[in-house]
Each structure stands twice: as structure tokens, then as C-alpha cells.
Design a protein around this nucleic acid. Structure first.
Length: 207
DNA sequence: CACACGATGCGCT
DNA sequence: GCGCATCGTGTGG
């Protein structure tokens, strides 16, 4: 297989950040729409980029940092305008990267759990390491032409989305708010639950 | 102020 | 499958 070169048109799309309106929508809608899009981070003059293949939605449910709709110093950016980065520190050593959704004042974020196209970017903490993300990026506006942005992307022919339950939480474990592109190498864990559902039928069968 | 614990990942059994 | 590293954060006294 030859490595595909970006056409000038594709390179242009990768350089253009998605705007506020993309993110200022219901969290579940944004979560699904982010699959296939690219996270781009300019570090020391180089752009690190990965294709989003696994996400989880967090809104006002019991597993969310914004549960109870009470802003705290940590979760405040989840209540702010959409399209900002929410990066939090956990387990004394890991960072996780989220993108804020919903209208200003309504908490919501999409946790990015897996990327393709970057080495060791499966799992929310590993992808932060791969992209060079930590507490310095918390609160950054992803739509403002800064060093961190999201570029539009699409599902490829034959790809489809699986919707299932979220991972690594102890409450609200039945909400089917995890989405991933079936078969992607960057997905952190395969789904072994019977209730997983394919929400987008496969395109034409591949011969 | 004390303390329990986490939207994880890794190594070992 | 299980234990554990390691510390910021939220909660309660």
C-alpha cells in the first residue's frame, strides 16, 4: 500500500479549524460528528495530527464532571462557550482531552478516547501524551486559529459507527453514549456487550 | 483540614 | 482478571 499524499484541497481542509457552530450543538450530535475529524496540535513548528475514531459524550449525567450543573474550578470550562478544550488531570498522572459543546451556560463535552494515524494514541490518556496535551491547553479556544484545532473529516466508504456504553465509570453505566468507528486500530477497547448497536449501516459491501 | 477516589494505563498472575 | 502508581479535586467535619 502506498501512503496517500494529501491533495492541496485536502491539505487546506486540514489547516482550517472547525467553527463555533459545529460544537455549539447537542453533545450527542457533536460526538458522532467528530468521528473522522482530525485533532491538530502545532508543537515546536510541527503539527501533530490524529483522526478521531472513538469518543464519549458527557453532559449533565451522574458520571459527568458537570453533574448537578454546579460549576467548580475544575469543570468551569464545561459551562463556557463551545469549541474550547477541557483538559483534566486524573489518577495522579494522566490527562484527558475533551471538547466543550452546547450553548454557553449549558455543560457538555466530548471526551476523545482514540485516534488513528498517530502512534500510541488509543486511550484518552495515551492520546494526550501522543499529541502533547496537558493542563496548559485547558480552556484553549479551538476555533480561534491557535496552536490546537479540529479539522473537518469524513467517514470513509464502508466505515460505520458503533454506539455503546461508556468505559471506566461506575455510575450511569447504561447510557449508550460511546461512539467509535468499527474496526479502527485506535479504539481503546473493543465492545463485548450485546447491546452495542450499529447506528449507521455499512455502505455498499466491499467486493 | 482530612480524606476518599478517579472519564487510566501498565505489569503481573 | 487484578493491583497499583500518584496527586488534584470535591466533599464533609
Amino acid at each position: 500500500m502506498t501512503r496517500r499524499r494529501a491533495t492541496p484541497r485536502a491539505a487546506d481542509a486540514l489547516a482550517r479549524p472547525l467553527g463555533r457552530r459545529f460544537f455549539a450543538r447537542p453533545t450527542l450530535v457533536v460526538a458522532r460528528a467528530l468521528l473522522g475529524c482530525h485533532i491538530c496540535h502545532r508543537v515546536a513548528g510541527r503539527v501533530r495530527r490524529g483522526r478521531i475514531v472513538e469518543v464519549e459524550a458527557y453532559t449533565d449525567d451522574a458520571a459527568s464532571h458537570s453533574r448537578g450543573r454546579r460549576p467548580t474550578p475544575r469543570n468551569a470550562v464545561m459551562f463556557g462557550p463551545a469549541g474550547h478544550a477541557y483538559v483534566y488531570f486524573t489518577y495522579g498522572m494522566h490527562f484527558c482531552f475533551n471538547i466543550v459543546t452546547e450553548d454557553h451556560g449549558v455543560p457538555g463535552a466530548v471526551l476523545i478516547r482514540g485516534l488513528d494515524g498517530l502512534d500510541a494514541a488509543n486511550g484518552p490518556a495515551r492520546l494526550c501524551r501522543a499529541l502533547g496535551l496537558d493542563r496548559r491547553q485547558n480552556g484553549l479556544d479551538l476555533t480561534a486559529g491557535g496552536p490546537l484545532w479540529i479539522a473537518r473529516g469524513r467517514l470513509r466508504p464502508g466505515e460505520h459507527i458503533v454506539q455503546t456504553t461508556r468505559i471506566g465509570i461506575r455510575v450511569a453505566i447504561d447510557l449508550p453514549w460511546r461512539f467509535y468507528i468499527a474496526g479502527s486500530g485506535g479504539v481503546s477497547r473493543r465492545d463485548r456487550r450485546a447491546e452495542s448497536v450499529q447506528i449507521r449501516p455499512p455502505a455498499a459491501p466491499v467486493p
